[in-house]
Amino acid sequence: MFPTPQRLGGYLWKIPYKMSQLQKARQRKRLRAVDNVIATVGAALNAKNISLRKLDYLTSAAFPKESEMPAKDKYWIFSKYGRNYRKGAHRQPKFTKISNRTVPPGF
């Protein structure tokens, strides 16, 4: 029986360094879903004239909308060890359930 690439003992990365086209499409869909939640909650609070610090942060430049983000930030996040200080957004644990939209200034 031919051994699998993993069994051969090679240096095999099982998580690709970049996201596939379909992963990126689903990533955009999730970003938009979060944008919708923020917009809906924001509209409700505005109608009732309630202010909320968390909402201010989520509507500020520190938390851009999917449509305002460059592709570089949608699919790549800051990493101090990564090439060009970036690593694929799918490399972070639970990446489908967290928001990580901006990188430190200067990167």
């Binding site: 999730r30 919708n36 409700a44 609070l45 109608a47 909320l52 909402l55 489908t96």
Partner: peptide
Amino acid sequence: VNRENAGQILTLKELVE
């Protein structure tokens, strides 16, 4: 709709609709 509930929903913004 109030501050408390809005804040909790925003905490879970990745999980809910």
